[in-house]
């Protein structure tokens, strides 16, 4: 952490908050506070300047128009690039995940992305809608990924990004992989929201941003029940 408290930025809730994306902010802040880590949260709207010194940046899902507007605005602003270069952690969901790549498609047009993840997205033959499940890259040491996906894109990773997970149910990136990670940036198609269904990912972001090797365990009985139910639901054909 660069200051005494953990600073979390939610990027452009006015544009990218279609899929309960506030949930990721609430859960991350809740899990930090439960460990006694002081938290400051910032909801930065698209007409505001992007802070460059926060510890964690969250970006959510949204419709085509707002996605393209958010990418353009973030490129012009430049603050997020500086934050990432200074080592901030990022969780990017769905449309937010796509715009972290080199390019993506919105409203039938190819749009420039931030280029902070080595990947690009195009349109798939069908819309991917349903339960998503995957085995997360073992180097991250996390349990299975569970989420709900709803996107028309297919994402292709370059050599400098690693798939977040190997798909065991659902579509994800479209090539049996799902999401991507590089450094402290995580991208995924999972809604749910992702951190509600995958509290271990929230804790990974907290460890990355605080430098702590381990965090005190929390009572995750309800989250575990939810995970058990959704992982099983993804296994059976819809």
């Amino acid at each position: 952490m660069s200051t005494e408290s953990l600073r979390i930025v939610w990027i452009y809730p006015d544009l990218l908050s279609t899929y309960g994306d506030r949930g990721n902010l609430l859960i991350l802040a809740h899990r930090a506070a439960a460990r006694g880590i002081p938290v400051e949260t910032y909801e930065v709207r698209s007409d505001q300047q992007m802070p460059t010194t926060a510890d964690v940046y969250l970006i959510g899902g949204g419709e085509d128009g707002p996605q393209a507007a958010a990418a353009q605005r973030l490129i012009t602003d430049g603050g997020l690039h500086r934050a990432v270069n200074q080592g901030a952690a990022v969780l990017a969901i769905c449309a937010g995940y796509q715009l972290f790549g080199h390019s993506f498609f919105a409203k039938g047009q190819k749009c420039a992305g931030l280029g902070l993840l080595d990947l690009y997205s195009d349109r798939g033959p069908t819309r991917a809608v349903g339960e998503l499940r995957g085995d997360i890259d073992p180097r991250l040491g996390l349990p299975a990924l569970t989420g709900f996906e709803n996107h028309g894109g297919r994402t292709h990773l370059g050599p400098n990004a690693t798939p977040l997970a190997k798909v065991t149910a659902g579509i994800g990136n479209g090539d049996q992989t799902e999401g991507a990670w590089a450094g402290k940036i995580l991208g995924t198609y999972s809604h749910g929201p992702a951190l509600a269904r995958n509290p271990a990912i929230a804790d990974l972001l907290l460890r990355w941003s605080t430098g702590a090797d381990r965090l005190a365990p929390l009572d995750d009985a309800w989250a575990e029940r939810l995970r058990g139910e959704r992982l099983a639901a993804a296994a059976s054909p819809a």
Binding site: Y19, G192, P193
Partner: peptide
Amino acid sequence: GMDTSWLYD
């Protein structure tokens, strides 16, 4: 609707 993410809205 099958996506419950809205609960956080």
